[in-house]
Simulated scan of single mutants.
Amino acid sequence: MLELKFNKRSYSENVVRQALYWMSHISSWQLTDNEAEWIIEFNKNSTDVVHEFNRLLNDYLLREKLDKKTRIIRESITLAVLESVERKLS
């Protein structure tokens, strides 16, 4: 059994759960938490598990940061396209 703990201020629940989803083929896992930490128990105790989970955490953390930084511009583009379509249909 391998137990990993991560600070909730560093990783959102969404990031942790998305990374865990992709870990299911490597090891079964259980997610619990307390006020400050995400606590993950993997059935397989291996450095490969730790490395892969950290890789996935970093990947989804980066995706989350990019999503936050680009949300306004993506919404603006979507609005402009919808307004253009509406004008053409009128």
Rank of each mutant, 00 (worst) to 15 (best):
Q18V: 00
V85P: 08
F6M: 06
W38T: 02
V49Q: 05
D59H: 15
D67M: 14
K44D: 09
R63Y: 07
A80G: 00
T70I: 09
R55C: 04
K8A: 07
R63A: 00
L82M: 13
A80M: 01
K68T: 03
K69F: 04
W22E: 06
K5N: 07
T47H: 11
M1Y: 15
S76M: 14
E35L: 14
L56E: 02
W38K: 07
S10I: 01
S10G: 04
D67N: 15
L66H: 09
W29P: 01
R71D: 03
D48Y: 12
K5L: 02
E52G: 05
T70P: 05
E41V: 15
V85G: 09
K44A: 08
E75P: 02
Q30I: 04
W22C: 00
S12E: 05
I73K: 08
V49T: 02
N45S: 11
N43D: 09
S90R: 15
H25D: 11
F6Y: 15
N34R: 10
N14P: 00
E37A: 01
N7V: 08
S46Q: 07
L4K: 11
A19S: 14
I73V: 11
E64M: 09
L57T: 02
D67Q: 15
D59M: 13
N43A: 01
M23E: 07
E52T: 11
R55G: 08
T47C: 11
W29H: 10
N58S: 06
S76P: 06
M1W: 13
S84V: 05
V16P: 06
I26V: 14
L61S: 07
N34A: 05
I26G: 01
D33S: 14
L56F: 04
S84H: 15
S24P: 09
N14V: 08
Y60V: 02
Q18Y: 03
V85M: 13
N58Y: 05
V15A: 02
N14M: 07
R55M: 06
E41G: 03
R63C: 05
V50P: 04
E86I: 12
Y21D: 02
N14S: 12
V15M: 00
K68I: 04
Y21R: 00
L79A: 14
E13G: 05
V15P: 03
S76W: 11
R17M: 07
M23T: 04
E64H: 10
K44S: 01
E83C: 13
E3G: 02
R63T: 01
V81M: 11
E41R: 15
R87M: 13
L31V: 01
